[in-house]
């Protein structure tokens, strides 16, 4: 596995009228380059899966899409990422509204040590989305319903969020992200810490969320990528090797590295 010089992504990474466009994105951690010239479009209301072996840069790329890498001192991003045509790395862009628009769900469920209600209300409160208590109650209820958690927790909204099961916690984190009314949701291996039943529920939820949101999901499970996504992007050592419709990637991959990975020869 060596770095392929000047690889040009095969398949169809670009598309007309995309929600998010990445152009020649490179990411450096200090001296070390983690991502090499990645260009990728993410369409409105699609689920795109980012797959690849560990350390291939898929999570790093995902974190570029809402500038989460800003919290790492030595991380440096070049290139452009356009959200509805505006570069999110423009110095004038404020990350606060950006991260509300492009929300994120993490690998390990990370509910705040607060009540279920306050976990959901946290985002709307800091962004001033609710003008009254009634408004806030409504946002909380709607978000929990969309995340498929309402029926399980409606009687204990003021119990601590950390007391829920792992799968419920992850749905709570999704509800928390939905509560600030995002347009794009980034998911970084959202099921890797969950059991198969909880995973199935989250996957079902992702499919439902596609109606209203644009979703990019990083996953190590190829079955999961096949089940939830419409397009799949294969990363290898910091380069975007291939982007194609999910069916095509898993049946007739264009690039030999993609084929090697999905047939389990490495990774």
């Amino acid at each position: 596995m060596s770095i392929i010089e000047n690889h040009k992504t095969v398949g169809s990474p670009l598309s007309e009228g995309a929600k998010l466009r990445a152009r020649d994105v490179c990411v450096f951690y200090g001296e070390k380059q983690a991502i090499y010239n990645v260009s990728l479009d993410i369409r409105q209301n699609e689920v795109i899966a980012l797959i690849g072996p560990s350390g291939c840069g898929k999570s790093t790329f995902l974190r570029c899409l809402n500038r989460m890498n800003d919290t790492i001192d030595i991380c440096n991003v070049t290139g452009e990422i356009l959200l509805d045509g505006d570069n999110i790395y423009d110095p004038r862009v404020d990350v606060v509204p950006l991260r509300a628009t492009v929300g994120m769900v993490f690998q390990k469920p990370n509910p705040f040590p607060k009540s279920i209600y306050d976990n959901i209300a946290y985002g709307p409160r800091i962004h001033g989305l609710a003008s009254s208590r009634v408004d806030l109650d409504e946002i909380v209820e709607k978000s929990l319903q969309r995340a498929g958690l309402w029926n399980e927790v409606k009687d204990r909204l003021h119990a601590p969020g950390t007391g829920l099961s792992g799968g419920q916690q992850q749905r709570l984190c999704i509800a928390r992200t939905i509560a600030v009314d995002p347009e794009v949701i980034l998911m970084d291996e959202p099921c890797s810490a969950l059991d198969p039943i909880a995973t199935a529920k989250i996957e079902e939820l992702i499919d439902e969320l596609r109606e209203n949101y644009t979703i990019a999901i990083v996953t190590h499970s190829m079955q999961q990528a096949a089940r939830v996504s419409q397009r799949t992007a294969y990363f290898h050592l910091g380069q975007l090797i291939e982007v194609n419709a999910t069916d095509k990637v898993f049946t007739t991959p264009e690039h030999q590295l993609t084929e090697a990975y999905i047939t389990g020869r490495f990774g």
Partner: peptide, 8 residues
């Protein structure tokens, strides 16, 4: 991360 991810 969870908090920053929500735009805090």
């Amino acid at each position: 991360d969870g908090s920053y991810g929500l735009g805090a």
